[in-house]
Design a protein around this nucleic acid. Structure first.
Lengths: 200, 200
DNA sequence: GTTGCGACCAACCGATCGTGCTATTTTGCG
DNA sequence: CGCAAAATAGCACGATCGGTTGGTCGCAAC
């Protein structure tokens, strides 16, 4: 990997950090250059345009998400433990970071009414994520952990709901009990889906 | 109401509309002036600063929310029907409008990491709303509709979760079944809280 | 009829925006 | 080392940003 590639990666990391607080549109090239320690034109040479930079940022964030949330969970055996890992990792993803919170939830709201390549890439990552949840839930059904008639689309929907409420309670309300409330909600959701032990 | 007041109200309405797609920071005074049919300076004369305008916008949105969601629900009798009305109105609030979606959910994500008067006002409205949900749920307990040991904070949390997932499924995923999925999720949440009929 | 005031506007300010074009420096290879 | 290529910086551009200034217009009170 050449030097340019390395710098480029660092730029994107700084962009992600800035975007967490001011949004992706709010990241100006001047501010980003200063944050990354380059001149504005030196930075700009790495990207074709600001829009392209934004797409690259979403791309990088999606890759990072997959690396720390999805792939580790997929290394767990199908069924309960994989589902558990998916939830644990996601909880950590949302709760950690500086500043904390899931960057995709912010970006989703920023771009849900802004058609274009950024929204398109964002939507793709969201569909992937949602599909992952759904598939993992289906495995839980096949493994006999969930009721076989569990609606896995519905499960994914409510799973996302709990996660969003967590992000909101953590970042906006700054409720220190956010995590424990979230775990309770998730447990309640699970309880509706799992087979009663005497039926296993 | 003088002419100035009327113009001012119209400006804020245009600002709310624009903010739905570009965010509140993204509403420039120039674009807002053009949208409202005034000169930039003519518009600016109505506000002390852009920040003050933003606070006024949040204020107006909160008032509107209260008028179309909260107050009509509070006219219903305590217990089941008031809770039902609260949910129905909120669902309509999220699903209607142009463009659709709850503007507070967007603003929350935009300002959750931006300390200042806008965030403060936003947080206040969120606490009010959350408190409304909680209180209405408590009334449902007192009326014997909910189990008396229902955790109403937990209920409010999960209620918000379902609502956020709705907003997301509607605006980002653009799933036409968003509403029916949401109603199912809400019913499941209710089912955990309501007294079984034979115990009533 | 003129005086006073609220509503509004054109022109402008310095700063910053994204984005080119042209050096200049730095890097990696022979 | 020397040298081409890659990486970065300097500089300038038109546009737009939030905000200011000075003033005009219509209307109501006197």
């Amino acid at each position: 990997m050449g030097k340019g590639e390395h710098t480029r990666t660092q730029i994107i990391e700084h962009a992600i950090t800035l975007a967490r607080t001011v949004g992706l549109e709010g990241v100006s090239l001047g501010a980003l250059a200063e944050s990354a320690g380059l001149s504005k034109s030196g930075l700009f040479a790495h990207f074709k345009s600001k829009k392209a930079l934004q797409v690259d940022v979403v791309e990088a964030a999606a890759e990072f998400f997959s690396a720390v949330v999805v792939r580790p969970a997929l290394r767990q055996p199908r069924g309960e433990s994989r589902l558990r890992a998916l939830f644990d990792n996601y909880l950590r993803w949302i709760g950690s970071g500086a500043p904390s919170g899931c960057i995709f939830m912010s970006l989703n709201h920023e771009f849900d009414d802004r058609p274009g390549p950024v929204r398109d890439r964002l939507l793709q990552s969201q569909k992937d994520w949602r599909n992952t949840i759904k598939t993992v839930a289906q495995h839980a059904c096949e493994a006999g952990y969930f009721h076989s008639d569990t609606d896995c689309d519905q499960f994914a929907f409510e799973f996302m709901g709990v996660s969003m409420a967590y992000d909101y309670t953590l970042k906006m309300l700054q409720n220190p009990q956010a995590e424990s409330i979230t775990i309770k909600a998730y447990d309640a959701l699970l309880q509706r889906c799992v087979m009663p032990p005497d039926q296993v």
